[in-house]
């Protein structure tokens, strides 16, 4: 059974990757997850300098999912290159660096600093960050700003450039089309869905960051709809994610138009989730009477 897929120029041994922010910088799950078996890993978002993140509590369990308000805490690109990249270079899997910034300049600073470094297979722009020059609304809110940041970053690098969409927008297809026009190589979708919870014991918002991002099975239908819509709006490949726990979930994303997927929240409860899916995928494909992952990509799209 052929599990290999391509996301543009990036070839993955199988379509299962770890989602940004849920797998640290790689070594944290050593001994629990065999990284070499994964299709790839997306590391925690990296900014030009250190970001402190939000006050705790930073996570809160909800029905069928969880909220997080980590606030993109990370040590900055310099420390990342010095302390985390050496380990990532030794891994036998694809490494995707998730990039964050509060201005277009900041995104470019990170990407330019990474240019000198080996061991990076793709960049994933997280455009859900607050755009401080435009009053804190995220870059991902409208096609114009999403295209501006993507165009600027495109000019700094030849590396495969994936743009990660926020689902908290009216028309994700339009945003995907806008970033495709200015040179994005793939679309990652989706980031978390904005939400909140109240801690009745404290009579306060449950999260230190007040609102947070919903992830886990609860958002899978939202994610599938975004992937399905984006697949009809662009011709570049899609990396799908949102609530994936099982091989059947993966196949749903493939059929909706994703070429590969990422698993995030499910790893917290079951660190073995990704490897279990990779294990089960050949049998599942055989039952569907296909001989490669490739045959399923977009199978549920209109006209297929």
């Amino acid at each position: 059974m052929n599990l290999a897929v391509r996301v543009g120029a990036v070839r993955l041994a199988n379509p299962i990757m770890a989602a940004s922010g849920t797998f640290g910088f790689g070594p944290e799950y050593q001994g629990l997850v065999n990284i070499a078996r994964l299709g790839g890993i997306a590391v925690k978002g990296v900014s030009p300098g250190p970001w402190p993140g939000n006050p705790p509590p930073r996570v809160w369990e909800t029905e069928g999912g969880m909220l997080n308000s980590i606030g993109l805490q990370n040590p900055g690109v310099e420390v990342f290159c010095r302390e985390d990249l050496p380990f990532l270079r030794t891994t036998k899997t694809r490494v995707v660096v998730n990039v964050i910034g509060r201005t277009i300049d900041e995104y470019c600073q990170v990407v330019e600093r990474l240019e000198a470094e080996s061991g990076i297979d793709a960049l994933e722009l997280n455009i859900s960050c607050p755009n401080i020059k435009e009053g804190g609304m995220s870059f991902g809110q409208d096609p114009e700003h999403a295209a501006q940041v993507t165009r600027a970053v495109r000019a700094c690098t030849k590396r495969p450039l994936w743009v990660k969409l926020s689902p908290n927008v009216a028309d994700p297809g339009a945003i995907a089309a806008a970033v495709e026009r200015v040179g994005a190589d793939a679309i990652s979708a989706i980031n978390t869905v904005v939400g909140m919870a109240i801690d009745v014991k404290r009579r306060r918002p449950a999260l230190g960051g007040i609102s947070g991002g919903l992830s886990g099975p609860a958002i899978k239908p939202i994610a599938l709809r975004v992937v399905y819509q984006v697949a009809q709006s662009v011709s570049i490949p899609i990396v799908g994610m949102g609530g994936i726990r099982s091989v059947e979930d993966v196949v749903e994303f493939l059929m909706a138009g994703a070429s590969a997927v990422m698993v995030g929240t499910a790893t917290f409860a079951e660190p073995g989730t990704m490897e279990a899916i990779i294990e089960e995928l050949p049998g599942y494909l055989a039952r569907l009477e296909v001989s490669s992952v490739h045959e399923l990509i977009g199978a549920a799209l209109p006209g297929r």
Binding site: G53, R58, M66, N68, T267
Partner: peptide, 26 residues
């Protein structure tokens, strides 16, 4: 005690403020 996600250091959910060599850090 702190609210946790992964439990293994990967998600940065469970932080507390501590003294670092160059000032406070999580």
């Amino acid at each position: 005690e702190q609210r946790m996600g992964c439990g293994v250091g990967a998600c940065l959910a469970c932080v507390v403020m501590a003294n670092g060599p160059e000032g406070p850090l999580w």
